[in-house]
């Protein structure tokens, strides 16, 4: 996975969740996005599902898949590489 893809995913997270005062450099590639990481919840998850499909053409069909995909930026990148258009 390219550094550019990681950067684009981090920017997508910031834009779609409208996180103020944060840049891609502030998000660690392997840090958890939910819980003690960025502290995201199910409302955020659905927002990320829509953004991932729009920006990368990668469909997350259900919460079980989402739990794996949204573990970290790296896992999102892996999923996009395998399922994106």
């Amino acid at each position: 996975m390219s550094d550019q893809l990681m950067e684009n995913i981090k920017q997508m997270i910031i834009d779609s969740l409208r996180i103020e005062g944060m840049s891609p450099a502030d998000i660690e590639t392997d840090a958890p996005l939910f819980g003690e990481g960025l502290g995201l919840d199910s409302i955020d998850a659905l927002q990320l599902v829509v953004a991932m499909e729009k920006d990368f053409g990668a469909v997350v069909p259900d919460a079980a898949t989402g739990t794996k995909v949204f573990r970290s930026v790296r896992s999102m990148a892996e999923y996009i590489s395998e399922n994106g258009k």
Binding site: S42, A45, L46, V49, D62, A63, G66
Partner: peptide, 10 residues
């Protein structure tokens, strides 16, 4: 709801 495509149902 989950069977019918809900993303989460808590």
């Amino acid at each position: 709801a989950l069977e019918n495509g809900a993303f989460t149902a808590n």
